[in-house]
Design a protein around this nucleic acid. Sequence first.
DNA 1: GATCCCGATTTCATAATGCAATCGGTTTTC
DNA 2: GAAAACCGATTGCATTATGAAATCGGGATC
Lengths: 172, 172
Amino acid sequence: MSDAHRSGCPINLTLEVLGDRWSLIVIRDIVFGGRRHFRELLTRSEEGIASNILAARVKRLTEEGILTRSDDPSHKQKALYSLTEKGIELLPVFAAMSVWGLRHLPVSEDLAIRARVLNAGGPELLDAFMDELRAEHLGTPTGPANPDASVRARLQAAYEEVLARQAEKAGP
Amino acid sequence: MSDAHRSGCPINLTLEVLGDRWSLIVIRDIVFGGRRHFRELLTRSEEGIASNILAARVKRLTEEGILTRSDDPSHKQKALYSLTEKGIELLPVFAAMSVWGLRHLPVSEDLAIRARVLNAGGPELLDAFMDELRAEHLGTPTGPANPDASVRARLQAAYEEVLARQAEKAGP
DNA sequence: GATCCCGATTTCATAATGCAATCGGTTTTC
DNA sequence: GAAAACCGATTGCATTATGAAATCGGGATC
């Protein structure tokens, strides 16, 4: 990482940090997939990231203050990756990208449902999700009247429902 | 451009199209800078893009349906690049990235002011800007009661005001 | 104590990036 | 009407980033 920036434009600086094919994929899997360990990110990735690329990305994202790395108390050599507030606040970027991809690119229905649900929920659902991530990753005490079903669980349920529907359509 | 996608996830597909250091810079200069010609994009770029990179990007973005290329009637060999609706609808992505960059990265005040103004205007200003871009790039008839000052002109004015203030502070 | 799993690292090939010079053509200048 | 400037690229070449596959040493498991 060079200390010299191409320009001080917010969009440019954001691209210098996240403008590649993998960084946001890794963060997406942590945010939406609930992955916290290296192996989870490596093996349960839709896109099949290579281990050296993943290692480089988590290192870089940690240096950039988007992730933090800590030891998993239950397993001495297991690293636990957590989002920082800086990382959690990428959620609106994901939301905007999802809306665009949903409208203009050939998304598969099963993987698109999460984006659809998240978008349909509006800013309120987005905020609720961010609060949930803060509780999970920062240890922030949960806010007033925590809903019984977490946002991620709701997104996951919607995803699995689509999968089940596709399976039953394909062959009973 | 390979036809095989890594996955059908909206975020992944978006990254496959725009996930590099330059694509969004080029589009940003067209959207916010009003650039329409190759030379303008090449020489008036804050970040100093190389001509071969720019050529590759405008070609790719055209193939992806984000830009269109046409002949400038006033100048036989001048190419005019226009945004498509697909390109115009990247504006919310820029907005989200700007907000994040503004909050978490070392932006320079002069280049940040546009992002601040656009963000302060909320969804209404964003929509107005998108309508303006449609009129400019798609030839769409302007909507009801077109405001006398265009959104881009307002952003530009704010930018120049900051520049002037900085100049006067630096040396009268 | 053999085996498996852990977060990486090494090796090597390919692709992207970046700089400088240049292209064939058009338009402007004097 | 010749010279100069400008147009959107393209080429050649060096450097850097990316990526796939195999592998690492150390702990955990049984």
